[in-house]
Design a protein around this nucleic acid. Sequence first.
DNA 1: TACTGTGGTGAACAACGCGTGAACAGCCTG
DNA 2: CAGGCTGTTCACGCGTTGTTCACCACAGTA
Lengths: 114, 114
Amino acid sequence: MSIIAPDEEILTVGPLEVAPAEHLARGGGQTLNLSARELRLLAELARRTDRIVSREQLYELVWGRPLRPGDRSVDVYVRKLRVKLSLALPEWSFIHTHFGFGYRFAAQRRRVVP
Amino acid sequence: MSIIAPDEEILTVGPLEVAPAEHLARGGGQTLNLSARELRLLAELARRTDRIVSREQLYELVWGRPLRPGDRSVDVYVRKLRVKLSLALPEWSFIHTHFGFGYRFAAQRRRVVP
DNA sequence: TACTGTGGTGAACAACGCGTGAACAGCCTG
DNA sequence: CAGGCTGTTCACGCGTTGTTCACCACAGTA
């Protein structure tokens, strides 16, 4: 029995676990070292697994204000997340681009190069 | 069973053993020489292994009163602990910083430089 | 193939959280 | 009393973070 009771929300997407309330994400036998924004973005994506989320929607969810035209913040943070996720789980890919629409979060085994 | 009745809590985190009731911690084949505060901090961290603990929470747990803004005591004692832990167990790291959130205690083999 | 718009990527930058060494006073012990 | 240990506070500077920019890569289309 643990001292603190984590009755908190835990999002499981394939081999990845995201616990926004605990400020952390686990995968590949390790705890990912994510910044505040990165974790927030990951959580919002994980909450919408298998659905396409537009940049505008993502920005409002994570930043809490409307996306200004020309703002590439979402793209930049998607990249940061992709790097850290593939570092912890090299055989998996999670953030899939849907050209012209947005991103879709889903655990997918990466094609192995022979 | 030992002479002194230790039905007490013994926290094991990787190669490290913490026995708060006995006021000591063992690791790397030796008993660590920790001060009262250091041991207390170590115990509270070890009790929450793999979870992020904020500075505010840690301070209240160890010092027993709310953390005043600007007080860096936790940071200083985390440093003292890190030094002594890595002295006894050079190949391991235990206290991991989560920027903007707090610290997370977990036994992790240090990355060896090739 | 060439064109156009969307997305990927690396880097520069300021702000600031955190790591770190040191100074200091209080306490205990010899 | 002297010396060592402890706990606390301070100042300095490094590394991380968040943001923005420029440039490149690629998809879709004519």
